[in-house]
Design a protein around this nucleic acid. Sequence first.
DNA 1: AAATCGTATTGATGTGGATCAAAGGGCTCC
DNA 2: GGAGCCCTTTGATCCACATCAATACGATTT
Lengths: 244, 244
Amino acid sequence: MKSAIPVTTIEIKTACSQCNLRELCLPFGLDPREVNQLDELVGSRRKIKRQQHLYRSGEAFEAIYAIRAGSFKTDVILEDGRDQVTGFQMTGEVLGLDGISSERHSCNAIALEDSEVCVIPFSRLEELSRQVESLQHQFHKIMSREIVRDHGVMMLLGSMRAEERLAAFLLNMSQRFTARGFSPSEFHLRMTRDEIGSYLGLKLETVSRAFSRFQEDGLVAVQQKHIRILDTPGLKKLLNHHAA
Amino acid sequence: MKSAIPVTTIEIKTACSQCNLRELCLPFGLDPREVNQLDELVGSRRKIKRQQHLYRSGEAFEAIYAIRAGSFKTDVILEDGRDQVTGFQMTGEVLGLDGISSERHSCNAIALEDSEVCVIPFSRLEELSRQVESLQHQFHKIMSREIVRDHGVMMLLGSMRAEERLAAFLLNMSQRFTARGFSPSEFHLRMTRDEIGSYLGLKLETVSRAFSRFQEDGLVAVQQKHIRILDTPGLKKLLNHHAA
DNA sequence: AAATCGTATTGATGTGGATCAAAGGGCTCC
DNA sequence: GGAGCCCTTTGATCCACATCAATACGATTT
């Protein structure tokens, strides 16, 4: 299939082997030869404009997606129109795992900003992970990590107060920005108060008030979507010092 | 390790190939030869008495567990003592998937009644699923199903009112009992009101009141842990007819 | 630079479920 | 088979967050 002409600069730049996200993504733990095998499998990239769907609930499942650039939210919608954001995904994270069980996507994935994903045909991923043990293991870890994350959100939704939820959210974002080489204390949120609220099981006004409260208490400096964390230990204390 | 004497009746009875749960469990979709390979991998069974832990958060992860008999709950506990039930598991369901990501269990699994599980050493499962495509696929489906289930719980915790949560819970239990050949409308809950409440993000008093309300409205007949569903459509209506 | 629209903040009021409290019922374990 | 204890139910009160409402801000368009 591959032509004999040399690969273009762009193709090189987008290969797993050249991708600076590989420590966070599917190639983690693979040796260079194995990463090259993965490269062949990642057929195409897809650009998704802000507010566009990467996939929709009910669509046939054929591939999972690794985020190369940008960010997404996933949500589920009930018949009566209520919806709930189930997660926010950043570069290097994998989207679409929910579709494996029924061969149909069970949520919507929507770009929070202009973004790009690597398309990983799932049957070929299963095929290759039968041959490459480290890939198989990394894939299992990624799925398991999603389960653990979900349990954390269930804890948050089931037993935390509004300010604790927002503190947990901010600390989580900080940690994920840090893992991507950005500042732990200063970042730009790509989602609205309403989307944060949906994720945290709160109304947007409650999210806004909690932000204001944190600002009053000197925990963070908030300017719309731009966040500066001033007192990380203070935020952590908010989480744990709750009388049982 | 195995002695040369013929396998006992009990050992035969507990093999996957003879297990009547195989349609719900890991062997689903495997041909008889493949199920035999799985049999060899399922090293041992473990009996867990009511209230005993199958595993605890923080323990090294080595195996996943398929429930042969009985039922379990899983929970996560915060430093300050707050805890949250993240799921109830019935026969044929798999426990321990949360441990893959960090090689340590991230929650506790506790038997709700005297129970028995099949121990599936994880590294051997990965090994065999590199050889047996249908096993690999079934395992991936099981993990994905857990993710989808978790998203449903997030929806429930984030956007439903108390009675809707309980209705969703009862319908889910009914469906799972049905899948196991039991009555869809009459069953015995193994967990307390407190545990249901923890799972649903409610206090036990609220769960109790919701049960009483359902009883008044003729939706269910409740006698302690014994539940008879009288009006399934009524319960379903409660879920969907919510003004957005 | 003005107009528009989505997003955010802040205030006033309402309410669903939490909390506090007490009594009754049914298991479990001697 | 009885004692004790945990579990459940029900009532009264409280409070955290939702809801309703108005304004302000900022980005985008023209």
